[in-house]
């Protein structure tokens, strides 16, 4: 039962990633694209955690944590860039 649930869930998350990707490509404003990237990395964390259950491996945890950290820093950097037009002073 868990495997069936996981297969459905993974398909749903992949669909979610496609929707985010569509927004990433479509825009229109740069903010929309950054938001889409932000969503995309959170979707990826969900996907990685699901794969981790699917293949019964604990190795995926570190990957998910690293994606969460780098994703957040990336979003903040991009938003700062939009806010100021430059990153470093």
């Amino acid at each position: 039962m868990l495997t069936a649930a996981l297969n459905i869930a993974i398909a749903a998350v992949l669909l979610a990633m496609l929707l985010s990707l569509w927004r990433l490509l479509r825009g229109p404003a740069p903010e929309d694209r950054v938001l889409a990237l932000d969503t995309l990395y959170i979707n990826t964390i969900a996907l990685v955690l699901m794969l981790s259950i699917r293949f019964d491996s604990r190795l995926y945890f570190e990957a998910a944590l690293l994606i969460a950290m780098t994703g957040f820093v990336g979003t903040i950097a991009l938003a700062k860039y939009l806010l100021r037009g430059n990153l470093m002073d």
Partner: peptide, 17 residues
């Protein structure tokens, strides 16, 4: 829980789109 979570992840991206 997995299905519940997947549903909300999907709804979030649907909202974005």
């Amino acid at each position: 829980l997995i299905l519940f979570g997947a549903f909300f992840v999907l709804v979030g991206s649907l909202g974005l789109a």
